[in-house]
């Protein structure tokens, strides 16, 4: 690990100014990924700006009936928050599906969004990787890639985004709030992460110097139920092979609101717009769920060893949609 300087500002403006003054600086919150990457030699910031002293840890209802989650709110606190559990169960479940209790006690909302791929080549500083060292190549494409992307990958990168939380946020139409030298802006979570294209070094649309201040969720659609389900190699404490977050309303046997997102399949949480098109207004039947999943996954381009993710994602989606529909049909 490279030596670095450390500051702990108490005001958000000060943190942003500090960042602007030191090229290569990084904000530090829970540190569960950044410190890990610094130990691996993947990250080597000259300055860490500790944002744990900033007033960014609140979880509170918005005037519009939604929920604002501060950037430094801990994953465990968000998962256990009564409003999250009651109104956004998919988010609570996604958080609880990730990592371990110890990690969730440290990991933050903003940090979780910004966590980086667990691709083994990215994590090994002695090997090529276009994400870590642009232009050095992508050994994963022909190498060990069972866990990597089937959707939206490029010749330059086949990494997946590892977050569970972000998948639920994508399905919940959450927005990321950013603050930088140029002021504030919001970006939908589903557009916050990028596809790799020819710039896999950029995971997200965040600009240099911008700080995530929080995430805002709109009020859930009336009568909606949500859920998150994850498949993994062991029963707990493992990254997703594939996962799905879904939010659904059903009335008189027909689907009303439908939001679906996949995890573990792509460089970003994959909001399944094509599937949603099929779902909306369609009868709440297994046949509909299958058609929806197939519509989305038709774009999949599996690599040599990860083709299983396509039927896995399909099965997960069908299963979760079926369970939700059977619990949400207002006609009973």
């Amino acid at each position: 690990m490279k030596p670095f300087a450390y500051v702990r500002p108490e005001r958000t403006e000060e943190a942003i100014d500090r960042f602007a003054a030191q090229p290569g600086a990084r904000f530090l919150a829970g540190g569960t990924n950044l410190v890990d990457l610094m130990k691996l030699g993947v990250a080597g910031p000259p300055l860490l700006i500790d944002i744990n002293g900033l007033p960014l840890d609140a979880v509170e209802e918005t005037a519009a009936g939604g929920l604002h989650i501060g950037a430094t709110a801990r994953n465990s606190d968000v998962a256990a928050h009564p409003l999250v559990r009651v109104r956004y169960p998919a988010l609570s479940q996604a958080l609880l599906a990730g990592a371990s209790p110890q990690l969730r006690n440290a990991a933050t909302t903003g940090g979780n969004l910004l966590q980086r791929t667990r691709c083994p080549y990215f994590q090994d500083a002695s090997k090529p990787c276009n994400k870590r060292a642009p232009g050095s190549g992508c050994p994963a494409r022909e190498g060990v890639h069972r866990d990597l992307a089937v959707l939206g990958h490029s010749a330059h990168c086949v990494a997946t985004h590892p977050s569970d939380m972000a998948v639920a946020l994508a399905a919940l139409d959450a927005e990321v709030r950013l603050r930088g030298p140029a002021g504030e802006r919001t970006v939908p979570v589903a557009e916050f992460h990028r596809l790799p294209g020819d710039r896999p070094d950029r995971d997200t649309v965040i600009e240099d110097g911008e700080l995530i201040t929080g995430v805002t969720l709109p009020a859930p659609p009336s009568g909606a139920r949500g859920a998150y389900r994850k498949a993994r190699d062991r029963a707990s404490y493992a990254f997703a092979l594939a996962s799905v977050a879904a939010v659904l309303t059903v009335e008189d046997g027909r689907i009303g609101h439908a939001a679906l997102a996949f995890g573990g399949l792509a460089h970003k949480p994959w909001r399944a717009h094509a599937a949603e098109e099929v779902l909306r207004g369609a009868p709440a039947t297994a046949e509909t769920y299958r058609r929806a999943a197939d519509a989305e996954l038709a774009a999949a381009e599996p690599l040599r060893d990860n083709g299983f993710k396509v039927p896995l994602a399909r099965n997960l989606a069908v299963s979760v949609l079926h369970d939700l529909a059977s619990r949400t049909d207002t006609t009973g």
């Binding site: 083994p120 190498g143 062991r234 029963a235 707990s236 404490y237």
Partner: peptide
């Protein structure tokens, strides 16, 4: 390509956890 074992940490080499 590289001649090493890919799963070199305890996040990728899955020793059973308590839930298993």
């Amino acid at each position: 390509a590289f001649g090493d074992y890919t799963e070199r940490d305890l996040a990728s080499y899955h020793v059973p956890a308590c839930a298993d």
